[in-house]
Nucleic acid binder design. Sequence first.
DNA 1: GTCTATAGGTGGATAGAC
DNA 2: GTCTATCCACCTATAGAC
Lengths: 210, 210
Amino acid sequence: MPNRNRRFDRPRNFVYTVNMSQLQGRILSCALDLYLEKGIHGLSMRQIAAKLDISATAIYRHYRNKQELVDTIVAEAVKIFAGYLFSALSGQTAEERFRMCNQAYLDFALGQEKYYEVIFLEPHGQGADAPEESQQKGLANFQFLVDRVQECVDSGYLRKANPRSLALSIWAHNLGLMALFFSGKWAMDEAAFRKFYWESQERFLHGLCD
Amino acid sequence: MPNRNRRFDRPRNFVYTVNMSQLQGRILSCALDLYLEKGIHGLSMRQIAAKLDISATAIYRHYRNKQELVDTIVAEAVKIFAGYLFSALSGQTAEERFRMCNQAYLDFALGQEKYYEVIFLEPHGQGADAPEESQQKGLANFQFLVDRVQECVDSGYLRKANPRSLALSIWAHNLGLMALFFSGKWAMDEAAFRKFYWESQERFLHGLCD
DNA sequence: GTCTATAGGTGGATAGAC
DNA sequence: GTCTATCCACCTATAGAC
């Protein structure tokens, strides 16, 4: 007979993020560290337990299994990223909202480094086999950029072009810049990187040739 | 007493790549597949053995341990990439050599997909804890691009700027484009991607704004 | 150079006591 | 909701026969 006392037997949409300072949240945070360090196959319930000084089985009161733990991390990451992007809507003009979109991406990457890695640098990005729901929300985040680009094409700030294709180029450029930074092979601290980031954006906006 | 018959008791620089159709090479190729699929913690000697229909211990006659297997994969990948880049030297002008450098990157990514992934898309790229030797050769490959950029700044084709910084922007853009393609989330076949790749390069060269 | 047998370890997950 | 005890699968690597 199943134990009816488990967290996941409660209603589906209950908000657990609220009490993150308790065990639930500490498990998640610890799992995140291990997941980024060693990937899904290197992450183990026993190691999480050891780090938190609890027994491995305690974790199963909070997460059905290892996969649910990882899925929760990915869902959380996508949600937080969406929050950052959303702030760009406060810009007054299309151009400003576009610029703020890049700013949000940069701030998310540097301010929520671990969640950024989960979404954009893991196995092959965006949790390749994440649950449908997270995949959808990930695409919605990209669509947000497409919409900002569309506005800028309409306003005449950006050259006329397919907004989706343009957005993909911009997305790729951002993706690559962050991958460079997080690889840690370029001896740049955060301040130096922020400077380089905007230089590179400027180059992209106005071209490499005369 | 150690068995003196092992591959790695032979001279260090012996070229094994020659006879890749034999077991040695088949192990490497199979390990590469599993490594890309599941990462280093998901790769197992037993699974390699099962796929090749040999016993797991047979592998140890060819590779000292799991780490040496992975290191060999990374070293091979870096060497092959260098070969692609090198072909760009046949260009007649600085501008042509620069363009051929992008071409080589694209051809390597699409023609040696698996080796590309090992270098640029793995855990955090370029085998974060690869042996010193591979790390050095990886940096040399980047320096090759810096040199091509330098030539183009000198010839006046590219705007005056720090060549290293310029090369980093270009490297990032390429990195991001490939990451998009390999993520498989954008419903592009290889032909469509090649088209998009050059479109995006063109945008980068001449800017997004008027 | 390949095998079988085996040592010694880590891991996911469950049952049932408290 | 946390624990201990436990099952069973899987892992790396070695020893020694052939």
